[in-house]
């Protein structure tokens, strides 16, 4: 599999390098732009700031979303979860102003916007995982003298912990996608998104590509890391899956 990916990546790079289309910057131009951004414009520092913001938002979104999703076992909370889930059709317009009125600190406004963006997708995925738990699994726990909260703990929290991490993994990717936009709203706070928008504003396409590839690499590493964590924490989860 690794060989297959390596060969495909090499072919893609070769096509990019040899492409006569001059709209795209060449790999060597992107590499030079990356060096300049890293050495002179603090790409590493901005990347770290963005990573920290993203992880902070992810942690808060996880707590809110998992809490709300687990509460859907009580009929009272289902309309609330459904309403939050519908929020994924909303545009961001208006929310920055709203959050500016609530939070004075621009950092927390960015975090709040990211939490909002992640939560609506997180709750949708996680509530669906929980609602699809068959009745027989809950009844099995009840036959073992488990009370209702213990059933929630055993079947819903522990029993879907692997899926919760998988949903987290997907939402971490959504976080990176939204981050550049959110950081664009508050450029004074810095971050890789602000840097990207500055490069784009000045038509520095090689710089834009360099930052995009950096974000992609960090995102993929984060994705891989969460995958490794999942396999270590939940070894049973992959036993029935045929990996290809």
């Amino acid at each position: 599999m690794g060989l297959l990916v390596g060969v495909q990546a090499a072919v893609a790079l070769a096509i990019w390098w040899a492409s006569p289309l001059r709209l795209l910057p060449r790999p060597d131009e992107v590499a030079r732009a990356f060096r300049t951004l890293w050495m002179q414009e603090g790409l590493g520092r901005e990347l770290w700031a963005s990573l920290a913001t993203n992880l902070q938002a992810l942690g808060i979104a996880m707590v809110i979303s998992l809490g709300l999703s687990y509460l859907t076992v009580l009929p009272f909370f289902r309309p609330l979860a459904a309403a939050v889930s519908k929020g994924r059709f909303l545009a961001f317009i208006g929310f920055p102003l709203l959050f500016t009125l609530v939070f004075a600190n621009p950092h927390w406004i960015k975090v709040a916007l990211l939490v909002l963006a992640m939560t609506v997708f997180f709750v949708t995925s996680m509530a669906s995982v929980i609602l699809e738990i068959p009745r027989e699994r809950l009844e099995h726990a009840r036959t073992l003298r488990m009370g209702e909260w213990r059933v929630v703990g055993e079947v819903i929290v522990l029993g879907t912990a692997d899926k919760a991490l998988e949903v987290t993994r997907q939402n971490a990717a959504i976080g990176w996608m939204m981050l550049t936009m959110v950081e664009g709203f508050y450029r004074g706070e810095g971050g890789v998104g602000a840097l990207l928008l500055n490069q784009n504003k000045h038509f520095l396409l090689a710089g834009v590509f360099a930052i995009q590839l950096t974000i992609l690499t960090v995102g993929l590493l984060q994705d891989y890391g969460i995958g490794v964590l999942g396999r270590a924490l939940f070894p049973w989860a992959g036993l029935t899956v045929e990996r290809r």
């Binding site: 027989e136 699994r137 009844e139 099995h140 726990a141 009840r142 036959t143 073992l144 003298r145 488990m146 055993e154 079947v155 522990l158 029993g159």
Partner: peptide
């Protein structure tokens, strides 16, 4: 519930 052991058709386990 819990006084009588129950084994459903597809043998549910954790």
């Amino acid at each position: 519930r819990g006084m009588v052991g129950v084994v459903a058709q597809n043998y549910p386990l954790f």
